[in-house]
């Protein structure tokens, strides 16, 4: 992993709008507080948390992680293609990213359905309160992220992004990576670690 592969002459620059980065910080703060609340509560209910956690579907969790990571990678490739004015590949990458996001949502719905079928809800116990709260809070972010990707795809199709302007594209991409980042911590924390 070597660093500095970009143009060395280019000054440091934040990709995407400053406003989205302020927003991302606020979002990460919310996730961070939620994670901390989970971890602190678990520390005093280790047995109950471990038992309840064993019932989670780690397969779907892992598949969802793969989907989000791959989605993020596709978005990176889409941005790179757009910067090089290769519009068709950019759209293709963005389309696959969108499918990854939708796939995440579908998998999550199946996962929830299985939980509801067992009669588990937010009121079942503290672990499931956190499990549903955290994953649902994240789920809503994926929904928003998917909407953003759809808009980016639509605008790519209209030729809005290219070497002349990728500001909007980078802004939306940054948000999607944040959704990915939050899940990367969420998955081991809630599904696996014991």
């Amino acid at each position: 992993m070597t660093a500095a592969l970009s143009d060395p002459g280019e000054p440091p620059r934040l990709r995407g709008d400053l406003a989205i980065w302020v927003f991302i910080l606020a979002e990460l703060l919310a996730f961070g507080v939620f994670f901390a609340a989970y971890a602190v509560t678990r520390a005093y209910n280790v047995e109950a948390f471990n038992t309840a956690q064993a019932g989670l579907d780690r397969n779907i969790g892992a598949i969802n992680t793969l989907l989000l990571i791959s989605g993020s990678w596709c978005v990176v490739r889409a941005v790179q293609a757009a910067r090089a004015d290769r519009q068709t590949p950019a759209m293709r990458w963005m389309g696959v990213a969108l499918l990854c996001g939708l796939g995440f949502l579908v998998a999550k719905v199946f996962e929830y359905q299985a939980k509801f079928a067992l009669g588990l809800t937010m009121d079942s116990d503290t672990f499931h309160m956190f499990y549903f709260s955290l994953t649902f809070f994240h789920f809503m972010h994926v929904v928003l992220g998917v909407c953003i990707l759809a808009i980016l795809l639509f605008k790519l199709g209209r030729g809005a992004y290219g070497s002349h302007d990728v500001h909007g594209l980078e802004t939306g991409a940054a948000y999607w990576h944040m959704v990915d980042l939050a899940w990367i911590v969420l998955f081991p924390l809630v599904y696996v670690m014991r």
Binding site: A26, L29, A30, F34, A37, D123, M129, S133
Partner: peptide
């Protein structure tokens, strides 16, 4: 109200100062 509101209420209202700070 259901107990989970203790968490949701605490966490999100703890973030309410953020927009004011902004």
């Amino acid at each position: 109200a259901p107990e989970f509101w203790h968490w949701w209420g605490s966490i999100f209202s703890a973030l309410e100062p953020v927009p004011f700070f902004a």
